[in-house]
Simulated assay, not measured.
Amino acid sequence: MVAMDNLQMTLQKTQFNLSAYLQEYQSLVEAALDQSICVVYPEKIYEAMRYSLLAGGKRLRPILCLATSEMAGGTVEMAMPTACALEMIHTMSLIHDDLPAMDNDDYRRGKLTNHKVYGEDIAILAGDGLLAYAFEFVAVNTQNVPAAQVLQVIAKLGRAVSAAGLVGGQVVDLESEGKADVSLETLNFIHNHKTAVLLESSVVCGGILAGMQESDLQRLSHFSQNIGLAFQIIDDILDITATQEQLGKTAGKDLQAQKVTYPSLWGIEESQNQAQQLITAAIAQLEPFGAKAIPLIAIAHYITSRTH
């Protein structure tokens, strides 16, 4: 606890400017994403892929990957292909999540969803295209990283998006809609697999690329699982308290779909307390990394203070 307090004091003393940091790294990610996909024949599919990939957003997953790589002694350059791949996978999940067969949403990041612009058929294929390309992009573009570590990253990303990860979480989420007796255990399973798993991959892959030892990777895994669950709790709260303009997507969708959420189980105040406890536990995992962990600590705090 003393070591964690020292980290918090270091964060305050350095007056770390998270807003400037996020803006700088977001710009780097946006430029890399823009260059990652060109429009060639058949133009429609590439345009659809770019439409959702370049629709904005916090770019939190790529930034976590880059920040962790730097903390572990790596570079932005060696981590950027994986950072882009993470955003491609995340974008695929959003395109498919918004489909009528899933959440049936019309807006995402303040814009019409992919299927509303290009049709359901092209939206499905755009998601498929982004998912496949993500793995190719890591394999082809990662430089100055041993092949074994690149392979480890590809395996980590594959598991994150598989039935053991994101897909499995989505299945249980769909099966739970409209049920009043969904347990906290089931809710945690859904969001550990739907939300936390990709955040965890973002952080851990940054460490893998930089050659971190297994014990440190385990710390990063615990850190990111905790911030991933806190992220979802805050998302559930914002679905109730924020407007459509703030969210960039339809507000109140969880209530409409009769989904069990953390606020429906705990109430808003207790949900906020639980999210804060998860962030505190997450930051404790970063003690051995000292001041190098300041960007990750600041991002963890941002997760519980965001308004959109």
Rank of each mutant, 00 (worst) to 15 (best):
Y107I: 15
R109D: 09
R109T: 14
A72I: 09
G73Q: 06
D98Y: 04
G119P: 04
I89M: 15
I63E: 04
M71K: 02
A79N: 05
I63S: 03
M71E: 06
A67Y: 00
R59T: 00
R109G: 13
P81M: 04
P81C: 07
I95W: 00
L94I: 14
K111W: 11
V76Q: 06
T75A: 10
L99N: 01
G74I: 13
Y118M: 07
D98P: 13
E87L: 15
A101P: 02
A67N: 01
G119M: 08
E120C: 13
P100W: 06
A67M: 01
E120A: 15
L64C: 12
D103F: 04
N114D: 09
G73P: 09
T113I: 08
L86D: 05
D97L: 11
E70K: 11
G73S: 10
R59V: 00
L60N: 07
R61F: 07
D103I: 02
E70H: 02
M88H: 09
N114E: 01
E87I: 14
D103G: 01
L99I: 01
I89N: 01
C84H: 01
G74F: 12
K111I: 14
S69K: 09
L112P: 15
L99P: 03
S93N: 01
A85Y: 05
Y118I: 10
H96Y: 02
T82A: 15
K116C: 15
Y118V: 09
A85R: 08
H96L: 14
K116Q: 15
A79L: 11
N104M: 02
P81N: 04
D106M: 06
R61C: 05
V76L: 09
P100V: 07
A83F: 05
L66D: 05
K116H: 14
T91H: 07
P81H: 01
R61G: 10
M71C: 10
D97P: 12
I89R: 02
M88G: 03
R108P: 08
R59P: 01
C84E: 01
T113W: 00
T113P: 03
E87H: 12
S93F: 00
